[in-house]
C-alpha cells in the first residue's frame, strides 16, 4: 500500500474543495471498511483520502414526524443503539446488524455501503424497500436521487467526480407499514449475500389487505434491483401465501444473476423467490405488529 494524503474537512464545502484538489485520485472516506481493504489489496490507487466523519451533517441523525434523515457517515452501531430508529424503522436494523461484526459496525456506515455500490450490499435492497432519497453534494451544488436509481453497475453509481453522498432521507412510515431484509449465506456469519431481499408493505387497517408494497433483490444483477412489478402485483391483494408466491415468482423472473464462486444462476434465481416470499412474510408480521425487531434479529442470527 502506497503513502496517501489524509484530509479531514469539517464542512461540506471544505470537503468539496478537498475532493476537487485530488484531481480524480481522491476519494471520500467514512468507515473505510471497504475503501481501506481495497487500498490494501491493491484494487484501488489513490493519492488523497477525504475523511467525512468530522462534518456534522454527515454524522447527524434527525428523526421526527416527517421521517428520518441519516448522515451518510453515521455508523451502523449508532443506528443499532438509537431507540427512536429501532421503533420507527425496525427493519433497518436487519441490515445494520448484518454488516460486519460488532467492531466493524462501529465504523461501517449505510452511506458507505451504498456508495461502494456492490450488487450484494446488505443495506441497499432495504433502503429501496424504505423508499429512501439520497442527498448528494458536489462542485455543482446539491441534488437528490431516489435510492433505486443510485447504483449503475458493480462498484459504480451516479456520483460525478467530486460529488459525495451527504445524507439518506427516509419518509415517515405510514400506518400499518412493515419491512424486512433477509439474505442467504452458506455460513451463519462472515459472508457475502448469495441473494438478498428487501420488502416493505402497507396494510389495510384490518391487516387483511396489502395496500402497497415494494420489493428489491440483491446479488442477482449488476446493481441491486427494484422489482416494481412485484410490488404492483401485491397492491390491493389480500394477504395470503398465494399472493406472496406470485410476488416471489416475479422477483425470480426479474433476477438476472451470474454464476460465480458465491452462487450459481439457478440457485440465485430460486433464492430470489424464496427470500422475497420470506421477507414479505416478516414485513407483514411487522406491519401487523406481531413481531418485534429483536425477535426478528434473532431470526437473522443476531441476538
Amino acid at each position: 500500500m502506497q503513502a496517501i494524503d489524509f484530509v479531514a474537512p469539517t464542512s461540506v464545502d471544505e470537503a468539496i474543495s478537498a475532493l476537487a484538489a485530488g484531481s480524480g485520485m481522491a476519494r471520500p472516506l467514512s468507515g473505510g471498511t471497504d475503501l481501506i481493504a481495497q487500498l490494501q489489496e491493491g484494487r484501488l490507487a489513490l493519492d488523497t483520502v477525504v475523511d467525512l466523519k468530522r462534518i456534522p451533517e454527515l454524522m447527524a441523525i434527525s428523526i421526527n414526524s416527517d421521517g428520518l434523515t441519516l448522515g451518510a457517515s453515521v455508523s451502523c452501531h449508532s443506528i443499532n443503539n438509537n431507540q427512536a430508529i429501532r421503533d420507527a424503522y425496525p427493519a433497518l436494523i436487519d441490515s445494520t446488524h448484518l454488516i460486519g461484526g460488532t467492531q466493524i459496525q462501529g465504523r461501517a456506515s449505510l452511506g458507505g455501503n451504498l456508495c461502494n455500490s456492490s450488487p450484494a450490499a446488505d443495506s441497499i435492497p432495504n433502503l429501496i424497500a424504505h423508499s429512501v432519497t439520497c442527498h448528494i453534494a458536489g462542485p455543482n451544488g446539491r441534488r437528490t436521487v431516489p435510492v433505486e436509481e443510485f447504483c449503475t453497475a458493480p462498484g459504480r453509481n451516479v456520483l460525478e467526480n467530486g460529488e459525495f453522498l451527504v445524507a439518506l432521507e427516509f419518509p415517515a412510515p405510514p400506518a400499518n407499514f412493515g419491512a424486512a431484509y433477509l439474505r442467504f449465506i452458506p455460513r451463519n456469519e462472515m459472508d457475502i449475500a448469495v441473494v438478498g431481499a428487501g420488502a416493505s408493505v402497507v396494510l389495510s387497517d384490518d391487516g387483511g389487505t396489502i395496500q402497497s408494497a415494494r420489493v428489491s433483490i440483491g446479488a442477482v444483477a449488476p446493481t441491486p434491483l427494484f422489482v416494481q412489478e412485484a410490488g404492483d402485483a401485491l397492491a390491493g391483494q389480500p394477504v395470503s401465501e398465494e399472493t406472496l408466491a406470485k410476488a416471489a415468482d416475479l422477483a425470480r423472473d426479474a433476477a438476472r444473476p451470474i454464476s460465480d464462486m458465491r452462487g450459481t444462476i439457478p440457485q440465485r434465481k430460486h433464492l430470489s423467490g424464496v427470500l422475497t416470499q420470506r421477507a414479505l412474510r416478516i414485513a407483514i408480521d411487522r406491519a401487523r405488529g406481531t413481531k418485534t425487531v429483536d425477535e426478528l434479529g434473532r431470526l437473522n442470527g443476531h441476538g
Binding site: 452458506p186 455460513r187 451463519n188 456469519e189 462472515m190 459472508d191 457475502i192 460465480d260 464462486m261 458465491r262 442470527g301
Partner: peptide, 16 residues
C-alpha cells in the same frame, strides 16, 4: 484460484 480469502474459503465460524 478465486477464493483465496477466509471470506470466500468458508471455514465454519463459532455460529455454525
Amino acid at each position: 484460484l478465486l477464493n483465496a480469502s477466509l471470506l470466500d474459503y468458508r471455514m465454519p465460524t463459532a455460529l455454525d
